[in-house]
Write a protein that binds this DNA or RNA. Structure first.
Lengths: 222, 222
DNA sequence: GCTATCAACTCCTCAGACAAGCTGACAACT
DNA sequence: AGTTGTCAGCTTGTCTGAGGAGTTGATAGC
């Protein structure tokens, strides 16, 4: 699908380029709307929308009466884009880092509520592995993995995992297309084993089993 | 009533609230600009700027002739904000997850250039530990840790580490203020040990030493 | 030296006009 | 029946002009 970029978006990209080239330093004030509009050969409202877009990306900040200022030299990492461009193996290794450590922490911090969560999500996953459509199975699988991460009770790890979820989902969809036999759906035991180790409060075992499971996944795609 | 925020920003927040409440589902089309303007009691260009801001935050997407569509149910987390709010131990545990895995991978992937990088950054760190100002020492320390992560040759892990860097830097500044004796500067040996394990191509040892070092840091602040 | 005033600058908001693009309905054709 | 062409009515995109509101720095007066 082709997509024509509106002038305002092009103007935003142009401003971003100029900031990146150092035309305006951090904290510097941009020229006025009318000046910029004349420079880029567009209308004032177009410039306003471009500035507004970069404000949404936390690059610019406009103060009424004062001007428009640079508050960041480049757009905050768009993680979704970073992960989309990254190699699947790299993403899986990132996931491995997060989930093994989460499993380790979960083993010492899991609450009864976490255990109940494991039971539910594992039961769901077991049902979905049999005859559910691909997307049901994927969501059930992700739900269990997320349950493990939340059981670590660490906000940063949870956020990191959630950042990965869209990319994981896409990767699983691709994998399932190449896997008519549904072979990978049979690793329910590996998931139960991770939950068991966390339930048994064995950090090293939980981490080892999480590592083993994700290493297997990495091998199957690499 | 004092308006702290421009109307366009208020309109953007209002739209975000409505999306969060489920008024418009993922992929749904918002009412037209004129309709929204009437609903919120503002002009059309104000609505346009609000939409543009949310487009910058990757929540909305507008297609000429078709309408404005929801492409994410909530704004992508501003990582800098997340890390600022996160408890320092949470951040350290996230860092531990990334760096131990990076050390493990680095042990099997490190190149001669990586080893040279270790030598340089370790030497810098050693000099800085003696009598350099705090900020020099911090940068030297971070440079070595980054060298370890880059030696893993995984773009996702490197990006993750770079995301953490500002938070780590702030945390170290805080720590140094409470540490007049510069006791922590004496852990040069621990850093050398990590580099040695990677140089010796021993993944488990490298991971263990990285874990040990970062666990010690976590204990010292927790 | 200090303060009050003010003019010039900035962004903010609105309204109106027209261009450009999309969608669905319907007619015409194969 | 199925396909294609046309078009009206919607949508967003862009520009312009006008006035409102806030900030800043120079200047006059003390």
């Amino acid at each position: 699908m082709i997509r024509r970029h509106p002038l305002a978006e092009q103007a935003a990209e142009e401003l971003l380029r100029r900031i990146g080239r150092g035309e305006w330093a951090l904290g510097a004030k941009l020229p006025g709307e009318t000046t910029l509009a004349a420079q880029l050969g567009v209308g004032r409202s177009t410039i306003r929308e471009a500035v507004r877009e970069l404000a949404g990306r936390r690059v610019l900040e406009s103060r009424q009466g004062a001007g428009v200022f640079v508050i960041a030299l480049q757009a905050a990492e768009d993680w979704d884009k970073v992960l989309r461009k990254a190699d699947i193996t790299d993403v899986l290794e990132g996931r491995l880092a997060i989930e093994t450590e989460a499993a380790r922490l979960a083993a010492s911090r899991r609450t009864p509520a976490d255990l109940k969560n494991f039971r539910y999500t594992l039961a769901d996953r077991k049902r979905a592995a049999v005859n559910a459509p691909d997307d049901w199975y994927i969501e059930a699988d992700l739900a269990f993995h997320r349950a493990v991460v939340t059981a670590a009770h660490n906000a940063v790890l949870t956020e990191l995992f959630d950042t990965f979820v869209p990319r994981i989902r896409r990767a699983m969809i691709d994998m399932l297309k190449l896997d008519e036999e549904h072979r990978h759906r049979h690793d329910q035991a590996a998931h139960e084993a991770i939950a068991d180790a966390i339930r048994a409060k064995d950090p090293d075992l939980a981490a080892a089993r999480a590592r083993e499971h994700l290493s297997a996944v990495r091998s199957s795609v690499g």
